[in-house]
């Protein structure tokens, strides 16, 4: 609290503002039931959960489930797959919307600009289920568009959705296809905030498009880039596992099995609640550690750059 206050003062204000507490109460109840109760339930990672004894009454087994996961042959594969997919996805998908925004922002024809923008933004509204459904029909080895195209050039059909080697390219490619538009709009909003006079002055001085983008636009949106990058790193381990789950076939599991899909299978399909809760907890802890590390690095780096913020 910002101002020092005496206890009676606080009480008086609380009684005057009780209606505000009434307004926040429903959301707080939600928070307790659907967020904090599951957090309390995380302790089953250290127990052998059974529904009768519940979260806190089931027998305590310590680190047993973690040890089992670390020792299992799944561990290396699942953690490796998650990290590889997350990092490749970030490195490939992150720069694309920046480049698109820079190019669109410099289109001179206003109608062309809003057309391109609208087209690139539209996949934001297509659900993950439909995007994956499109993969299955367009990449089908016998009847799919892509394999017909390959056939046209004399190649053999590829079993895309059944190949471990193709899982990552398709996953990352579809991320770019589906999500670039949304991020692009954020960058365009930042670009709109750049003073047009800078561009005019640079043009008068004879700067061409490349130079104006490099020296005006890029520095102008750099803070936005940093913020979005930090958000992306913070969610690194939470890559769209729903898409991974939808894209998973028995044939590509070697690369498509990530931590969360494994939790889903072990936990909800095979009902090993405690074991999979332990894996989920491991995932959260790694994610949190990455986030904290990254923040420290950024803070140090910022002190070095000086200028940003």
């Amino acid at each position: 609290m910002t101002t020092p206050m005496t206890a009676p003062g606080v009480l008086r204000r609380m009684s005057r503002l009780w209606q505000l507490y009434l307004l926040v109460l429903p959301a707080l109840i939600y928070l307790v039931v659907f967020k904090f109760w599951p957090m309390y339930g995380v302790q089953i990672a250290f127990r052998n959960f059974n529904p009768i004894d519940g979260f806190s009454g089931s027998p305590f087994v310590g680190w047993q489930h973690f040890e089992r996961f670390f020792a299992s042959p799944q561990f290396d594969r699942v953690v490796g797959n998650t990290l590889t997919l997350a990092v490749v996805n970030l490195l490939v998908a992150f720069p694309v919307p920046i480049l698109l925004a820079l190019m669109i922002n410099n289109l001179r024809d206003g109608r062309l600009r809003s057309f391109v923008r609208a087209v690139l933004y539209s996949p934001t509204f297509i659900s993950t289920v439909v995007v994956v459904g499109m993969m299955y029909v367009l990449l089908s080895p016998r009847s799919g568009l892509i394999n017909h195209l390959i056939g046209l050039f004399g190649g053999d059909p590829i079993l895309f959705m059944g190949s471990p080697d193709w899982f990552r390219p398709i996953f990352v490619g579809s991320t770019v296809w589906q999500e670039s538009g949304f991020q692009m709009v954020i960058y365009l909003a930042a670009l709109a905030g750049i003073d047009q006079a800078l561009h005019d002055a640079a043009r008068v001085d004879g700067a061409n498009s490349w130079q104006r983008i490099r020296n005006i636009d890029v520095p102008g949106i750099l803070p936005t880039i940093v913020v979005l990058f930090m958000l992306a790193v913070g969610n690194l381990m939470n890559i769209s596992f729903e898409k991974a789950l939808l894209m998973q076939t028995p044939l590509n599991r070697e690369t498509s099995q990530v931590i969360q899909t494994y939790v889903y299978q072990a936990g909800l399909q095979q009902a090993q609640f405690s074991y999979s809760a332990a894996i989920g907890l491991f995932n959260s802890v790694v994610n949190l550690a990455l986030l904290v590390t990254f923040h420290l690095v950024v803070r140090r780096a910022r002190r070095g750059w000086g200028g940003l913020r």
Binding site: P38, G41, V42, I44, Q260, Y264, S276, A277, G280, L291
Partner: peptide, 12 residues
């Protein structure tokens, strides 16, 4: 920054 995860959420 932190949540219970898929399994405890399902159990709740």
């Amino acid at each position: 920054f932190f949540d219970g995860g898929m399994i405890p959420r399902y159990l709740v």
